[in-house]
């Protein structure tokens, strides 16, 4: 009986993390999250998912911690799309694609890149970046 409960608890823990790619950790100034054509209020603790777009205004900035411990932040006047995110917490395999349409982006890569050096890509309107376990900045004028 106790084992069954333990199994259910473990199941919940896995299910709760299945959809969330990460969560908002820092917010400054004007910022919003767009999901399925809707604008959602954005504050620390709000989960982000594959397909979400983060938009900041002239004084805005947002920081996100992903479930694989990747850290991303965007500065003012930025648009960042989370195109694809998948992470297996048991094997650490995954895929991580984001697009910076405009503005500034800071990236500290996490466990996905540690496990599979080619599994994270960042796009801008003109470039594709392959990330081999590192920290970097991107600006689109």
């Amino acid at each position: 009986m106790r084992w069954t409960i333990a199994g259910i608890l473990l199941g919940f823990a896995v299910a709760a993390g299945a959809q969330d790619a990460g969560e908002i950790k820092t917010v400054a100034g004007a910022a919003s999250l767009e999901r399925g054509g809707k604008k959602l209020p954005l504050s620390a603790g709000v989960p982000v998912r594959q397909g979400d777009t983060v938009v900041t205004g002239a004084n805005g900035a947002v920081g996100i911690t992903f479930t694989d411990n990747s850290l991303l932040s965007v500065g003012p006047n930025s648009t960042l799309v989370i195109d694809r995110y998948a992470f297996d917490s048991t094997t650490h395999k995954g895929e991580f694609d984001t697009s910076l349409r405009k503005g500034t982006l800071a990236v500290i890569s996490g466990k996905i890149v540690k496990q599979s050096p080619d599994a994270m890509r960042v796009r801008t309107p003109t470039s594709i970046m392959g990330v081999r376990g590192t920290e970097f900045l991107v600006k689109v004028d």
Partner: peptide
């Protein structure tokens, strides 16, 4: 890049 760096978690 001060603002974006400061926003990193």
């Amino acid at each position: 890049y001060g603002t974006v760096l400061q926003a990193l978690p």
